[in-house]
């Protein structure tokens, strides 16, 4: 598995430049354009903190998701369909679990990279209000994996990139917009709120918000952690069975 991670890292050495734009610059622009711009109009703040401080931790969790989506969709599809990278790996003494695990590990590496960068900048903007903010790192990895694993399973099940556009528009974008990143999900219609609670991002947002604001998430936080782990485990099993199905025929 480490050799697979190593392979992706070598690969990343050639492509990281273009990913910086989408995984770091765009969230930063959102922070400035939205957090500062719109925040200026949210005069009352939320739960006693400024809109910017409130939004940034959500945006970090959302960035973690965005980062893994970039790697868990197109590359996975093309490693099966066009570049056949997974098949080359399967001919070596690697098992499907190594191939899948190595790629997921690489995705988590990228999450750590972009979330660390984001945290540093957020700190410079003075939006992190507690040293607990470093807990955002493991939280982001957890929510990243909770999204990455099932999305990899999805990408391994399709044959055309049209289905990726469908996933992104019908699942990823709604999840990013309605998981409490930009406004509290309490104000959502109960049905939508339930949907937001079922999806993983809202829990990541809550947890990282608790961390940067230095609020004790209490027992709820523990349940949210466990729930994200369930997504990770379920997604892993699903993805692994897809990988076996595709690689061993």
């Amino acid at each position: 598995m480490t050799s697979v991670l190593e392979y992706h890292l070598v690969h990343y050495r050639r492509t990281w430049r273009s990913s910086v734009l989408s995984t770091l610059l765009l969230p930063l622009l959102t922070m400035v354009g939205f957090g500062l711009g719109v925040g200026g109009y949210v005069t009352a703040g939320i739960d006693g903190v400024s809109y910017l401080d409130w939004m940034v931790p959500g945006l970090i969790a959302s960035t973690a998701v965005q980062t893994v989506i970039g790697e868990a969709t197109w590359p996975v599809l093309s490693y099966f369909e066009w570049l056949k990278v997974y098949f080359a790996q399967a001919a070596a003494p690697l098992r499907p679990a190594d191939i899948l695990g190595g790629h997921l590990a690489f995705m988590m590496f990228r999450v750590l990279l972009s979330v660390t960068a984001f945290l540093v900048i957020a700190a410079a903007f003075g939006t992190l209000r507690s040293p607990w903010a470093v807990a955002v790192l493991p939280i982001s990895v957890l929510v990243g994996l909770a999204v990455a694993a099932p999305v990899v399973a999805y990408s391994a099940s399709i044959r055309s990139d049209s289905y990726l556009a469908i996933l992104i528009r019908f699942a990823v974008l709604p999840m990013s917009l309605f998981s409490g990143v930009f406004f509290p999900i309490d104000s959502l219609h109960p049905v939508l709120r339930a949907v937001a609670w079922v999806l993983p991002l809202s829990h990541g947002v809550d947890l990282s918000r608790a961390a940067t604001l230095g609020v004790n998430p209490g027992l709820d936080g523990l349940w949210q952690l466990l729930y994200l782990l369930v997504w990770c485990a379920g997604g892993w099993l699903l993805a692994l069975s897809r990988f076996r199905r595709r690689l061993v025929v």
Binding site: E6, H11, R14, T15, L83, V85, F87, A88
Partner: peptide, 15 residues
């Protein structure tokens, strides 16, 4: 099924 984005040498070393 080479990795066309890597160099010739990297294809061998990573493999």
């Amino acid at each position: 099924n080479l990795d066309v984005e890597l160099t010739v040498r990297e294809n061998l070393t990573t493999y």
